[in-house]
Design a protein around this nucleic acid. Structure first.
Lengths: 103, 103
DNA sequence: TTGACAGGCAACTAAAAGGTTGCCTATTGT
DNA sequence: ACAATAGGCAACCTTTTAGTTGCCTGTCAA
């Protein structure tokens, strides 16, 4: 769990998660194209952390490595924090927000 | 939003949030008792980050400072990640499963 | 009004994290 | 077979972050 929070703490890694959300199963090279600010090795490091945190699952095939988003740990965060922290109030809040946006 | 992730990345800060969840409105001194591993100044630093992230709201009265948990940013995380990721969750999982089974 | 209590500020140290360069391995296509 | 492609590993540098110590400010109560 600690690893998940650490992994989410970096903007570059969140960007990688976003990239995988937009298109799942990308290779390292493809992901690098979407983070031009970093070198390939930099991206590799981020992906390793994401993988260790269980947020990304990889599949090596031939000389490419495909990366897949695993949403389960994020879901677990929600379970922990949201359910603990005034779930009722928040439900009321988002209900109110939805109601307001509806009109 | 970046600050929220950074703030949540540290185990000590999450511990502080837990302490406030268990009993809201604690003073710095009270919070220090629950983190005996840290000095008062260390706890102060953590609380400042939590406050900057909007996760904790404070109220100074006399010589004490009361700390209150603000669950809204955590809810926003959930809104962002869960709603986005949850939506794709089944698709991602089945894509992953299909990819794994293909080989 | 003075001492004790609650907390704040600043400088410093140590450890961790982000990022790079350079080189190595394995796979694929010609 | 060999050149090109996809990625991995390790050493290194730099910045950030966690934590400390030391001292200062404001408030309350005797």
């Amino acid at each position: 769990m600690d690893l998940v929070f650490k992994a989410l703490a970096d903007a570059g890694r969140r960007q990688l998660l976003d990239a995988l959300r937009d298109r799942n199963g990308q290779t390292l090279g493809e992901l690098c194209e979407q983070l031009p600010a970093l070198t390939r090795q930099g991206v590799t490091k981020h992906l390793r952390l994401l993988e260790e945190a269980g947020l990304v699952v990889t599949l090596r095939r031939g000389r490419q490595k495909y990366h897949y988003l695993n949403p389960v740990p994020i879901n677990e965060i929600a379970e922990r924090w949201i359910s603990n922290y005034e779930k009722d109030k928040l439900r009321a809040l988002s209900a109110l927000k939805a109601a307001l946006e509806e009109s």
